[in-house]
Design a protein around this nucleic acid. Structure first.
Length: 892
RNA sequence: GGGAGAUUAGCUCAGCUGGUUCAGAGCAUCUGCCUUACAAGCAGAGGGUCACAGGUUCGAACCCUGUAUCUCCCACCA
């Protein structure tokens, strides 16, 4: 069989993903095994795969595949999130392109369009995940707005309302003028901005008295709200303004006469120490307005244009108005100066529009009523955050949590189950019929035609906080957890959650809250927080910057396995990842290395006496290499398992990488590889061959979570197997209990010796083909790896002597001396220089050790083991120095 | 404004309770090799005042204090 020289990833990826699906290897149903569960952080239904998803989902797939191999009933639940604002914005934009305005559509018609859009494009991202190799149980795919899950959201709302945790009221909320909805505090991103601080003169009404100035100056960054001013405020202790007591000022542009009020809130030091009060457009001003019983004038429309109430600039966009008003004020001579300042401006997380504080009627959840168990159980370690540094952040947020504004002025989402009779009565229930019944009890003269359901929908996160519960049993909220279905009982709580720290509050904290509220139990045990994928320059990857490679292009170029390895090579938990394509290249190179190791092994001709006519005996070199690698494999696997248990993914991967590349390919395979005789590779004995195949299989298993495709491909090329004998369901290798540490250490010395010989070749420019001789000065005569050394260093002989060998190149490993007799003459000066250098180093080292040992305090205070080690260092150094001095004396 | 974390080789990062020749790994670099598994490779080599300044200690990359720089989170200063 001819095997391609380089690995063809595309072919294998297609074949095996199909095969896994066909054989239902991703499928999970409750059984006698212990479950291992992950629920996917549902990507936006509108989304396309980006690098963040790649990282995230690769980690999940690695975890789930390894768990599957460890014998757990592994279940990875996929799905998508309806993402209210983002999706609705996208649909609105799309309709606009078709010349349709949302406002011209009825709620029902709009939703029809939205669903149509979802059906058409909603599955894209899940299809993309398949390309990555994600082994999700696709039969369990969920969508947060599907009927059952939506009903659960309503159940939850009603339940919380009954418990008294939900209220409705007019509050200052974060208004997104583009999404035309309120958003929660968490959905506002504060960014530093360069703003103009405009100093505006407000004329003082009635300035007959001479001592009163004509105007006061007020600094503002939002002059477009001037029309909404209903007072001017100064600090009562500010002596500059005491004369203004009882005075009024005239608001520019609209010439409204408003009072000067006094309140401690104003900072005397900031700006001019005066504050224009606009109760409709700033939370602080709103509070001032409440205290001083001020009028509230809302000068903005929901879409961010100036409203009728402003009385000027009506219909103009808020930012255009800002520019215009500055110009007009300047013309009127009312601007005393303009300062460039840096301040924080809030942006909508979903639409990136500048957020306006706006008064409106919204629904809220009292967070402090429900958040306690979610905090306690993270602090006591019941739920683990990885890395732990996020515990502090989590704690801080949970302890200062604000009420959650859960209503959104959108159509795409779960509609709030609140019903109004038009006469001030409200009831909370699922259906119109129930509402009628309930309202009748409150209103005897009820006209059912007037009954209206609340127009708003619930925040997306108000549905996704139920995700780990409802993906298994959406009905559990109404049925009660005692009546949970088999799936939920079996899979809940889930094991690991892999997500970005950005949504720690949005999602993780709230899932914890929901878990305790309705299941009385945590939703997951470990939360692995990934970093943000950034580019080489440390910038966040984003569409607008155009610095994000398309993951599918990467997969095409480097293979899914290569990309997976590339992503995880550089991503410790919680650290941002400075992504560079070269990592994928490294991943692909690794895949290719594995492929070629397989090619070598597949090409071995096995000597079975009858066929080849020769009986091939296993050599000593092969025998010792085999026992060594058995130990090495076990030793490294233990380390790898340990890394996994601590969620140190890149460390686990790197250990795997080195085990395969260095230990297996560079040392083991080189040691057992049959010699060439007359240009022809010799056959290999069966015992060595079988051992090698066995090791390769173990390594493939260990590599499988990282590189699912190539390992499955080789698994099947290696031998004929039953249809169900796939590596994806193979057993994770076990660790040898009686690790021979001594032998491992001995081989490390042998490796050093081999490297030393190679080094001599390089220095003396000797061909690797030229056989050399090595003589060890030693009392003993033979050690376990001698033949392996002969093979690896290409020696003619490896012998022992008790005497010094004159005229040979000599070197030391630890305290042992070795000689290589060379045909050529050694350059005496070079040798003297080399040996002198080494001698100097050792003398210096000895000195530092002896200083330490002669320090009474050290000997008195240090642990005995430590002192023992130092003494050993001293004696080793002494013997080394002695040897070096002897060598030098011969040369001189 | 408050808080958290970071700073170790050119790059990305390990370095656990201070002590093993402790200053490491991978990549990149340099040198030599197209050696019949692999040039997407092989062999070898070089490379760091552990951000800076003090302190504690017999001993500090690690503990303490301060400084600088960076990142993130939280917060209603016009």
């Amino acid at each position: 069989m001819e095997i391609a020289k380089t690995y063809n990833s595309a072919q294998a990826e297609q074949t095996w993903y199909r095969y896994w699906l066909d054989n239902k290897f991703f499928k999970s149903t409750p059984d006698h095994r212990t479950p291992y569960t992950i629920v996917i952080p549902p990507p936006n239904v509108t989304g396309v795969l980006h690098m963040g998803h790649m990282l995230n989902n690769t980690i999940q797939d690695v975890l789930i595949r390894r768990a599957r191999m460890l014998g757990f009933n592994a279940c990875w639940v996929p799905g998508t999130d309806h993402a209210s604002i983002a999706t609705e914005a996208k649909v609105v934009a799309l309709l606009k392109e078709q010349g349709i305005n949302k406002s011209d559509l009825s709620r029902e018609d709009f939703l029809k369009h939205a669903w149509g859009w979802k059906e058409k494009y909603g599955g894209i991202i899940l299809e993309q995940l398949k390309k990555l190799g994600a082994s999700c149980d696709w039969d369990r795919t969920r969508f947060t707005m599907e009927e059952d899950l939506s009903e659960a959201v309503i159940d939850v709302f009603i339940d919380l309302y009954k418990k008294g945790h939900i209220y409705r009221g007019v509050r200052m909320v974060n208004w997104d003028p583009q999404g035309l909805t309120a958003v929660s505090d968490e959905e506002v991103i504060h960014k530093e901005a360069q703003s103009k601080l405009v100093y505006v003169k407000y004329l003082i009404a009635g300035t007959e008295a001479l001592e009163i100035p004509e105007y006061i100056t007020i600094a503002t960054t939002r002059p477009e709200t001037i029309m909404g001013d209903t007072a001017v405020c100064v600090n009562p202790t500010d002596e500059r303004y005491t004369l203004l007591k009882g005075k009024n000022v005239i608001v520019p542009i609209v010439n409204r006469v408003v009072p000067v009020i006094f309140d401690d809130y104003v900072d005397k030091e900031f700006g001019t120490g005066t504050l224009k009060v606009t109760p409709a457009h700033d939370i602080n001003d709103f509070n001032l307005g409440q205290r001083h019983k001020l009028q509230t004038i809302d000068v903005l429309n929901p879409n961010g244009t100036i409203s009728e109430a402003a009385g000027a600039y009506v219909g103009m966009d808020r930012f255009a108005c800002r520019k215009q008003i500055i110009k007009d004020l300047e013309e009127k001579g009312l601007v005393s100066k303009i300062e460039e300042i840096k301040n924080k401006v809030g942006y909508s997380e979903r639409t990136n529009a500048v957020i306006e504080p706006r008064l409106s009627m919204q629904w809220f959840l009292k967070m402090e009523n429900v958040s306690k168990p979610a905090l306690d159980n993270v602090l006591n370690g019941e739920i683990k955050l990885i890395p732990e540094k996020f515990i502090n952040t989590y704690k801080h947020w949970m302890e200062n949590v604000h009420d959650w504004c859960i209503s959104r002025q959108l159509w795409w989402g779960q509609r709030i189950p609140a019903w109004y009779d038009g006469q001030g009565n409200t009831v909370i229930c699922k259906t119109r019929e129930e509402a009628i019944e309930l309202l009748k009890t409150k209103n005897s003269s009820l006209n059912t035609d007037n009954i209206q359901q609340d127009e708003d929908v619930l925040d997306t996160w108000f549905s996704s906080w139920l995700w780990p519960i409802t993906v298994f049993d959406p009905k559990v909220i109404r049925n009660g957890k005692a009546n949970a279905n088999e799936d939920l009982k079996y899979y809940y709580p889930t094991n690991d959650l892999v997500t970005a720290p950005e949504i720690l509050f949005f999602w993780v904290a709230r899932m914890a809250i929901a878990g305790y509220e309705w299941m009385g139990e945590k939703p997951f045990t470990n939360v692995y927080l990934t970093g943000i994928v950034r580019d080489k320059l440390g910038r966040k990857m984003s569409k607008s910057l155009g610095n994000s490679p398309d993951p599918l292009d990467l997969i095409e170029k480097y293979g899914a396995d290569g990309v997976r390895v590339g992503m995880l090579l550089c991503s410790p938990a919680g650290n941002d990842l400075m992504f560079d394509e070269s990592y994928c290249e490294q991943g692909r190179n690794f895949a290719n290395k594995v492929w070629n190791a397989f090619r070598l092994i597949a090409g071995f001709e096995v000597a079975s006496g009858a066929l080849s006519g020769v009986e091939v005996q296993q050599s000593d070199a092969q025998k010792s290499a085999i026992t060594w690698f058995e130990n090495k494999l076990s030793e490294q696997l233990e380390i790898i398992n340990d890394h996994y248990s601590k969620y140190r993914m890149s460390d686990a991967l790197m250990a795997t990488y080195k085990l395969v590349w260095d230990d297996f390919c560079a040392w083991y395979l080189e040691a057992i590889k049959p010699d060439f005789v007359d240009g022809k590779a010799q056959p290999i004995d069966k015992a060595t061959y079988d051992a090698t195949i066995g090791y390769l299989e173990s390594l493939l298993k260990i590599m499988h979570p990282w590189m699912p495709f190539i390992t499955e491909e080789i698994w099947h090329l290696l031998k004929e197997r039953d249809a169900k004998d796939c590596i994806i369901v193979a057993e994770w290798p076990t660790i040898k209990s009686d690790l021979d540490k001594k032998q491992l250490a001995e081989f490390e010395v042998s490796k050093e010796l081999v490297a030393m010989v190679r080094n001599v070749r390089a220095q003396k420019q000797l061909s690797p083909k030229e056989k050399l001789e090595v003589i060890e000065k030693s009392e003993a005569t033979r050690s376990y790896f001698d033949n392996t050394i002969i093979k690896l260093a290409n020696l003619s002989a490896f012998s022992y002597t008790k005497e010094k060998v004159e005229g040979a190149f000599s070197f030391q490993i630890k305290t042992t001396e070795f000689y290589i007799p060379l045909a050529m003459n050694l350059n005496k000066e070079d040798e003297i220089e080399r040996l002198t250098k080494e001698l100097e180093y050792n003398k210096g080292f000895l000195k530092s050790v002896q200083t330490k040992l002669s320090n009474e305090k050290f000997v008195a205070n240090a642990k005995p083991e430590v002192i023992e080690v130092e003494r050993k260092k001293e004696s080793d150094a002494l013997s080394k120095i002695k040897t070096l001095e002897e060598q030098l004396s011969v040369l001189n």
